[in-house]
Write a protein that binds this DNA or RNA. Structure first.
Lengths: 340, 340
DNA sequence: GAAGGCCGTGAAAGCGCTTACCCTGGTGCC
DNA sequence: GGCACCAGGGTAAGCGCTTTCACGGCCTTC
């Protein structure tokens, strides 16, 4: 790997190292005579010079990297956010380093430390937090250490830590959904609430219940079933619900993939989705828009969430942590037809 | 950002820089007395020392980064591959730098150059190539330059360049699918063939046609419609096909998302998918497994594809480019019920 | 016509590490 | 008891850049 260095270029062009550097990168308060610059650029091209980003980072004292930490990059929720982040990063001339933690908080912390070593300019963290205060504290500490080193952080989800956060309006969206379903004539509600400690799931549940309350409707506790935040969790939860024989018009699943599982469970149980029982989700995952019946859900503009978070980290640091709300909108579709 | 450096740690521990380094990273042929090592580690912990990865990269002459270039990270095809790559990378103690090019070859090339600057250990490139030899040449040149600098490259898709490649058995899988459909009683075939220059689409089409040929069936040219490699492309192609009034039993879409669009178009035209017309896709995208009717497709183990590609780049470099086949398997589902 | 600026260039000092290379004191062996 | 050896520690030379600083020429400016 006889990598060609800037000194090679300088020698080739017959100038000093300093001049070569200035010619290639342009310098703040030093200019290079055009003729010389040409010579340097020609030499660089001739030698196929490729600047060493590590060396530059080291000399300049800052990198061009931002980190993105997600639970599972294969999950369409996170991959949409990732698309937003990569787009915004490219816009800003940065590279993004991706970490997929598989929902393991320990790995989240480990990745924060690696990104700190990398001296990444910023970290964007997506994915619901839990209410386990022990790990939250360690995460907080890791983030604090990172920020102490001059790094910016933006979270996506709940404003749980003292950092800039893009907040998805989980509660408001779920409340709107409850209202819309009530308006469509639904009266007997059930919910697939996701796992107990999951904050996003909790927010959506709380919002849904609150939305029902404003319409004098209610969600009785025996109609709330807890299961994993996944497709299979949705399937299992729905199975239990149907098995219990609960009298229910419509089921709210706290995310789309759970709703998909629920739809499958209903079908397997011989219950028609839509006409027989309504099902609604949350997120409006793009690849899921062609389900039959099409799924009522709450749209979250995930791409914009990703870009917004990235831009937050790149903005001037503020004294107070910034909270950026992202509105979610109800999308009524065939899985919850109007009920007469 | 008064970042604490190794010298700070050394001073704090009362040892030399070299010893501190050896204590923290362990050295090849030097051991540090346990007592001293403890002292260094304690000092490091006390000062919240975080090694500078850039400096390490520079001193060691190699980084711990691998690059991943995909067309669109929000596409489930690529995000599944990305999941495989991140998993394999973490296994190997590497970080992955993600680039999403939006199908733009120019940006692919630009990203290769950036990754070369970063001195990334390896690059994994996923996504169908085109047959535009002008850009292919430039891409080849960029890759050659990168490899000349000691970088490893693995491609996912067609063995188009002289690099290690994980080849997805597009043709064989499509041929198997054709056979399976024929076996299920289908006789009149049509295909949504994707765009003209798209190699993956072409391979799948060729395989499908070849598979049909072995069964003395054929795909007449007027039953081949070309449209974008996307959901909307599938919709549009199917619309055209139905509008043409072609007498067809089953439609093969060259990927799952096109098949989804085709299903939607059929529904919108009042044609029942499955009983009325069969539809089959390719890829077996996970989030699409709960469509109704469930989609017949060819499963590609995308996660393994990602890990395999990563491992190829990390293996000892070979003289000859390695080709690793990944088998695809037909999955018959309800969208193509047996035809009597 | 001399003093002061300014501009373009080069020499050299780092940036934070790793790793030859060198040195010292202790051990084992004849 | 002397020698070779070795383990463990320190010194210092880079890695490939950026940037400060010093320097010389040339243009202004009284």
């Amino acid at each position: 790997m006889p990598s060609v260095t800037l000194s090679d270029v300088a020698r080739e062009a017959g100038v000093s190292l300093a001049t070569a550097s200035r010619a290639i990168n342009g310098s703040a308060n030093r200019t290079v005579r055009p003729e010389l610059r040409e010579r340097v650029l020609a030499a660089a091209a001739a030698l196929h010079y490729s600047p060493d980003a590590n060396a530059q980072a080291m000399a300049r004292g800052r990198t061009t990297t931002i980190g993105l930490i997600v639970h599972d990059i294969a999950d369409p929720y996170f991959s949409s956010i990732a698309a937003g982040v990569t787009a915004a990063a490219e816009q800003a001339g940065l590279m993004v380093t991706l970490a997929s933690t598989g929902h393991d908080p320990e790995r989240e912390i480990a990745f924060i430390e690696v990104l700190q070593s990398q001296r990444a300019r910023a970290i964007v963290m997506a994915g619901g937090r839990t209410d386990d205060e022990a790990v939250n504290d360690r995460l907080r500490a890791a983030l604090a250490a990172y920020r102490a080193g001059g790094g910016a952080v933006a979270m996506i989800g709940q404003p749980l830590f003292d950092v800039d956060t893009v907040v998805i309006e989980n509660a408001a969206g779920a409340a709107d959904l409850a209202g819309a379903l009530h308006g469509a004539g639904y009266r007997r509600f059930a919910a697939l609430a996701g796992p107990a400690g999951h904050l996003t799931a909790r927010d959506r549940m709380d919002g849904f219940a609150a939305g029902l309350a404003t319409h004098d409707a209610a969600l009785s506790p025996e109609h709330i079933v807890r299961s994993a935040f996944t497709r299979d969790g949705g399937y299992e939860g729905m199975r239990q619900l149907l098995e219990s024989g609960a009298a229910v018009d419509v089921v709210f699943a706290v995310n789309d993939v759970m709703a998909v599982g629920a739809m499958a469970a209903a079908r397997d149980a011989g219950v028609a989705v839509g006409t027989g029982i309504g099902i609604a989700g949350f997120d409006d995952i793009v690849t899921l828009r062609d389900l039959t019946p099409s799924l009522t859900t709450v749209r979250v503009p995930l791409l914009e969430v990703g870009t917004a978070a990235t831009e937050l980290t790149l903005a001037e640091p503020a004294l107070e942590p910034r909270i950026q709300q992202v509105a979610s909108t109800v999308v009524l579709r065939d899985s919850t037809p109007p009920r007469t």
